[in-house]
Simulated scan of single mutants.
Amino acid sequence: MWGIRLASLSPCPWAEEINEDQLPEYIKDKFVVIVGDKALAKRLEVAYATYKEVERFLDYLKKELSPVYMPYLQ
Protein backbone atom coordinates (compact mmCIF):
# COMPACT_ATOMS: atom_id res chain seq x y z
CA MET A 1 0.00 0.00 0.00
CA TRP A 2 2.70 2.50 1.01
CA GLY A 3 5.31 1.24 -1.38
CA ILE A 4 7.99 1.41 1.30
CA ARG A 5 11.31 -0.08 0.20
CA LEU A 6 14.44 -0.40 2.28
CA ALA A 7 17.78 -0.41 0.54
CA SER A 8 21.34 -0.62 1.79
CA LEU A 9 24.78 -0.17 0.27
CA SER A 10 26.02 -3.09 2.37
CA PRO A 11 24.44 -6.43 3.35
CA CYS A 12 21.59 -5.80 5.76
CA PRO A 13 18.71 -8.08 6.81
CA TRP A 14 15.35 -7.05 5.33
CA ALA A 15 16.90 -4.51 2.95
CA GLU A 16 17.65 -4.69 -0.73
CA GLU A 17 21.38 -4.37 -1.35
CA ILE A 18 22.26 -1.98 -4.17
CA ASN A 19 25.47 -0.52 -5.56
CA GLU A 20 26.24 3.16 -5.06
CA ASP A 21 26.29 3.74 -8.82
CA GLN A 22 22.64 2.58 -8.92
CA LEU A 23 21.51 5.18 -6.37
CA PRO A 24 20.54 8.10 -8.64
CA GLU A 25 18.18 5.98 -10.72
CA TYR A 26 16.97 3.95 -7.72
CA ILE A 27 15.84 7.05 -5.78
CA LYS A 28 14.45 9.01 -8.74
CA ASP A 29 10.95 10.37 -7.96
CA LYS A 30 10.95 8.88 -4.43
CA PHE A 31 10.87 10.29 -0.92
CA VAL A 32 14.30 9.39 0.43
CA VAL A 33 15.87 9.60 3.88
CA ILE A 34 19.49 8.56 4.29
CA VAL A 35 20.22 7.33 7.81
CA GLY A 36 23.67 7.76 9.29
CA ASP A 37 25.60 9.06 6.26
CA LYS A 38 25.24 12.83 6.08
CA ALA A 39 27.78 13.23 3.27
CA LEU A 40 25.87 10.78 1.06
CA ALA A 41 22.58 12.54 1.78
CA LYS A 42 24.11 15.88 0.86
CA ARG A 43 25.64 14.48 -2.33
CA LEU A 44 22.29 12.98 -3.40
CA GLU A 45 20.38 16.09 -2.22
CA VAL A 46 17.96 14.09 -0.06
CA ALA A 47 16.89 14.12 3.59
CA TYR A 48 19.20 12.95 6.36
CA ALA A 49 18.43 11.51 9.80
CA THR A 50 20.56 10.15 12.60
CA TYR A 51 19.93 6.66 13.95
CA LYS A 52 18.63 8.23 17.17
CA GLU A 53 16.13 10.38 15.25
CA VAL A 54 14.82 7.31 13.42
CA GLU A 55 14.47 5.41 16.70
CA ARG A 56 12.49 8.30 18.23
CA PHE A 57 10.29 8.53 15.13
CA LEU A 58 9.53 4.79 15.21
CA ASP A 59 8.73 4.99 18.93
CA TYR A 60 6.33 7.85 18.19
CA LEU A 61 4.63 5.85 15.44
CA LYS A 62 4.22 2.84 17.72
CA LYS A 63 2.42 5.03 20.27
CA GLU A 64 0.30 7.06 17.86
CA LEU A 65 -0.65 4.72 15.03
CA SER A 66 -3.73 2.62 14.95
CA PRO A 67 -3.03 -1.08 15.62
CA VAL A 68 -4.07 -1.73 12.02
CA TYR A 69 -0.76 -0.23 10.83
CA MET A 70 1.49 -1.96 13.36
CA PRO A 71 2.51 -4.80 10.98
CA TYR A 72 4.19 -2.17 8.78
CA LEU A 73 6.53 -1.26 11.67
CA GLN A 74 7.83 -4.78 12.20
Rank of each mutant, 00 (worst) to 15 (best):
E55W: 04
L23S: 04
V68D: 12
M70V: 01
V32Q: 10
E55P: 02
L9S: 08
F57N: 03
P11D: 09
L65Q: 10
L61S: 01
D29W: 06
M70I: 02
V35G: 04
L6Y: 15
D59Y: 03
E20T: 04
I4E: 09
E45R: 15
S8A: 15
S8D: 12
W14K: 14
Y51W: 09
V33F: 11
V33R: 13
E20A: 11
E17A: 03
K52M: 07
D21L: 11
E45M: 09
Y48N: 06
D37L: 07
E25I: 05
K30P: 01
E55H: 05
V68R: 13
D29V: 01
R5V: 09
D21I: 13
A39E: 14
P24F: 06
L73A: 00
A15Y: 12
A41F: 12
G36C: 04
V46N: 07
D59M: 08
I34D: 01
D21K: 14
L9A: 07
P11T: 02
C12N: 14
L58I: 06
Y72G: 02
R56C: 03
G3Y: 14
E20Q: 15
A49V: 02
E45W: 07
V54N: 06
F31A: 06
K28Y: 01
K30R: 15
K38L: 07
L40K: 14
L58G: 03
K52H: 09
D59N: 12
Y72V: 02
A39K: 14
E55D: 10
P71S: 08
M70K: 15
V32R: 12
Y72D: 04
Y51Q: 09
K38F: 02
K42G: 02
A49I: 02
D59G: 06
K28W: 05
P24R: 12
G3Q: 12
L40T: 02
I4T: 09
M1Y: 05
Y60Q: 08
A15W: 09
L73C: 00
D59F: 02
F57I: 00
S10W: 10
I4C: 10
E16W: 09
I18Q: 09
E55Q: 13
Q74C: 07
A49P: 07
S66Q: 10
V68A: 09
I18G: 01
A7E: 08
W14S: 13
W14A: 11
E25G: 03
I18W: 03
T50D: 04
Y51T: 00
G36Y: 11
S8Y: 11
E17G: 01
P24M: 13
I27L: 14
L58N: 10
P24L: 11
E20Y: 07
A47K: 13
D29A: 12
Y48R: 11
A47W: 09
R43Y: 00
A15K: 12
W14M: 14
S8I: 03
K28L: 10
Y69F: 05
P13L: 12
C12G: 08
R56K: 13
V46W: 08
Q22I: 03
W2R: 11
L44A: 02
L23W: 08
L6P: 03
P71G: 03
E17D: 01
S66I: 01
